[in-house]
Design a protein around this nucleic acid. Structure first.
Length: 199
DNA sequence: AACAACCTCAACCGCATCAGA
DNA sequence: GTCTGATGCGGTTGAGGTTGT
């Protein structure tokens, strides 16, 4: 959607002007300038990028635009059943840690996943009895401790797929839940989470 | 056709954390 | 150890699109 008219022109969001910074929807020209500047300075020093790009946008705004829209390999469009399944599983494990979840969905942004969750999956989750992603029900997704009273947290590998007929969902728990590349603070958090879940 | 209600998603805001001085 | 600016994250907003009445 992108708040774009049929002729391709961008509709500017009406927001109160503050500090004379540009706000609202990015124009194609702004995108081009930003991408150009990032090409020179790299996607890291956002205050420098914001200044050099001469967009009159704050560093945070530039970063967000890059991360959620301009970055290469951004995947757009519908979530596959497998992606949806993975989001559900990751959310079950991590909660609203969107950036962590996004890190395991190549091409998807934390913002997109967050929006997707709020629009689709949270509703499905609320719809208790009927929610079923890739062949698992909400009941099955619960930790074993909740199902049986035993004190153990288990993330079940998917054993079926609802999207592509006949194709099994190859969900490697060890792969997707491999946090070895995370920052120490994140790793520590995950470890504590898992310890808490199993105690 | 007109209007209302709901949906979607880009973008903003505030806070937490990190890193360097 | 403290301060400060930069960066990252999650929650929320709001405008356009879509669907229902």
């Amino acid at each position: 959607m992108a708040h774009t008219r049929a002729d391709g022109s961008i509709i500017q969001k009406q927001r109160p002007a503050m500090n004379e910074l540009n706000r609202g929807v990015w124009t194609a020209e702004e995108d081009r300038k930003l991408a150009e500047t990032i090409g020179i300075y790299g996607a890291k020093q956002w205050t420098i990028i914001a200044a050099k790009a001469e967009l009159n946008r704050c560093a945070k705004s530039c970063r967000l635009r890059w991360m959620n829209y301009l970055r290469p390999n951004i995947k757009r469009g519908n979530m596959s059943d497998q992606e949806e399944d993975l989001i559900m599983r990751m959310h079950k494990l991590l909660g609203n840690r969107w950036s962590l979840i996004a890190a395991r969905l190549p091409g998807r942004t934390d913002n997109e996943i967050k929006n997707y969750w709020n629009c689709h999956l949270s509703k499905k989750k609320l719809d208790k009895g009927t929610f079923n992603v890739a062949g698992i029900s909400t009941q099955e997704m619960r930790p074993k401790s909740e199902q049986t009273g035993e004190e153990e947290t288990i993330i079940r590998p998917s054993n079926s797929s609802s999207g592509e007929q006949g194709s099994e969902s190859v969900f490697d728990v060890n792969d997707f839940f491999d946090f070895s590349n995370e920052k120490p603070s994140t790793l520590e958090w995950v470890t504590k989470f898992l310890e808490f879940g199993s105690s």
